[in-house]
Simulated scan of single mutants.
Amino acid sequence: MIRVLLADDEAMIRAGVRAILSADPGIEVVAEAGDGRQAIEQALAHRPDVALLDIRMPHLDGLATAAELARALPTTSVIMLTTFGEDDYIARALAGGASGFLLKSGDPHELLAGVHAVAGGAAYLSPKVAHRVITELGGGRMSHGTAARRRTDTLTPRERQVLALVGEGLSNAEIARRLHVVEGTVKAYVSAILTRLDVKNRVQAAIVAYEAGLVPKT
Rank of each mutant, 00 (worst) to 15 (best):
V115M: 03
K128G: 11
V29R: 03
L163S: 11
I207D: 12
R178S: 11
V208T: 09
A19T: 02
S22F: 00
A95F: 00
G145C: 11
R160F: 06
A148S: 14
R160V: 04
V133M: 06
A93K: 03
T218E: 15
Q204I: 00
H46C: 09
P74A: 15
E183Q: 13
G114S: 05
T195E: 14
S22M: 04
L112Y: 00
L69P: 04
A123F: 03
A33R: 11
D35M: 03
V133D: 10
A147P: 04
I134V: 04
L63Y: 01
R37Q: 10
T135S: 14
T185M: 14
T76N: 13
A23D: 08
T154G: 15
V78T: 08
D49L: 05
E136C: 05
K128N: 10
M57E: 07
A206C: 07
G184S: 12
E159M: 13
I175V: 09
R18L: 07
R177E: 15
K104R: 13
E28F: 05
M80L: 15
A7H: 05
A176N: 06
E86P: 01
E211L: 15
E174R: 13
A64Y: 03
L81M: 09
S126P: 05
R158Q: 14
V203S: 15
L52G: 12
V215W: 05
A66S: 12
L112M: 06
A188F: 00
K187N: 12
K217L: 14
V181G: 11
Y189F: 11
E211M: 13
M142S: 15
K187E: 14
G120H: 01
L197F: 03
E136G: 11
L111K: 02
T83W: 03
G138P: 03
H116Q: 06
I27T: 04
T146Y: 07
V4M: 08
A123Q: 05
V4L: 08
R56L: 11
I175N: 11
E28L: 13
V17N: 09
D49S: 11
R177P: 02
V118L: 05
I40T: 07
T65R: 15
H180Y: 04
P216M: 07
A91D: 08
M142K: 14
S143T: 05
H180I: 05
H180A: 14
A51D: 01
V181T: 08
D107F: 00
V50P: 09
R56V: 10
H59N: 14
V115S: 07
A91N: 04
L194K: 09
A39P: 04
T82C: 10
G145H: 05
S77V: 00
A206I: 02
A39Q: 08
D61N: 14
H46I: 01
